[in-house]
Write a protein that binds this DNA or RNA. Structure first.
Lengths: 147, 147
DNA sequence: TTGATTGCAAACGGTTTGCATGGGA
DNA sequence: TCCCATGCAAACCGTTTGCAATCAA
């Protein structure tokens, strides 16, 4: 499964975009894939593979872990899903817009921070020795619920 | 192994500090621990557990993986070592000073960026709903070697 | 002396793989 | 029809655990 797909700036994973991409790249849509994508679309947090597995099986009690991983890796390989390591597990982030994160050191909550809500760093300040293409900011602290 | 230790601001993992901490907290120093810490002290990159294991065994050919993990977790639990997920594996960062990172999307190189070399964000811009204690910036791009 | 630390090997948990079956296009 | 995707189970791999032996303090 090589990376063949690029659609420019994808804001957020959505079924419609995946259908388009699949059709043009020769991938097949299946009920399982639609369920998985549907769940990710609506996810406000950053689910783990297992959370996807259980959520999908609550609706269609017949989706194997292999299919879940296969689908997640497929979406990752076409840049429609991001993998992040948070706390101590891998999580999947359907938000492909540039954004930052807030992580609560108490409960592990991860919240997206809209890119524009933090000031732009300004490329002038970035180190010159490497070619920097993007950046993201991770804020750490205590969330409202834990305070 | 509960977290009992706090030494204020630790700049960078060093054997001397660990010896002091161990003595005051009732932990024991062993040749294996000294080797592992010695390796981490001098590491310019962010080694994986396996890299530590092989590096240490090159010098003392008798340190088990269990001991490596045990020591890494011990240092982590007393805030003298940080765990990071980079690329697709867990890595250990002996630099406990506030700093940022540059990650090469081509070779996976991780380089520390001195905190002061990026402008301070200014807390005014941070979201008000959670209590933000710190932040770090991850720069992504292509390193000099890969260009 | 004493109990923390070690090495070993088995266990564990998340992810991937091989293969035969099933189902989109 | 064709071959991509699926389910299952086994394999894999990094990490943790249980236990008896060892050794730092």
């Amino acid at each position: 499964m090589t990376k063949k797909y690029s659609m420019g700036i994808v804001q957020r994973l959505c079924l419609k975009d995946v259908e388009t991409m699949a059709a043009s790249q020769g991938f097949k849509m299946t009920p399982q894939r639609r369920m998985i994508i549907g769940f990710l679309e609506g996810a406000t947090s950053h689910p783990t593979a297992d959370e996807v597995y259980f959520a999908v099986n609550k609706k269609i009690p017949m989706t194997s872990r292999a299919t879940v991983y296969n689908t997640l890796n497929w979406l990752k390989s076409v840049d429609m899903l991001r993998e992040r390591f948070e706390g101590d597990k891998v999580r999947y982030d359907p938000n492909c817009e540039r954004h930052h994160h807030f992580i609560c050191r108490c409960c592990g909550l991860v919240e997206d921070i809209h890119f524009d809500s933090l000031q732009d760093l300004g490329l002038i300040d970035l180190p010159q020795d490497h070619s920097v293409e993007s950046y993201e900011i991770t804020l750490r602290g205590i969330c409202k619920g834990c305070e």
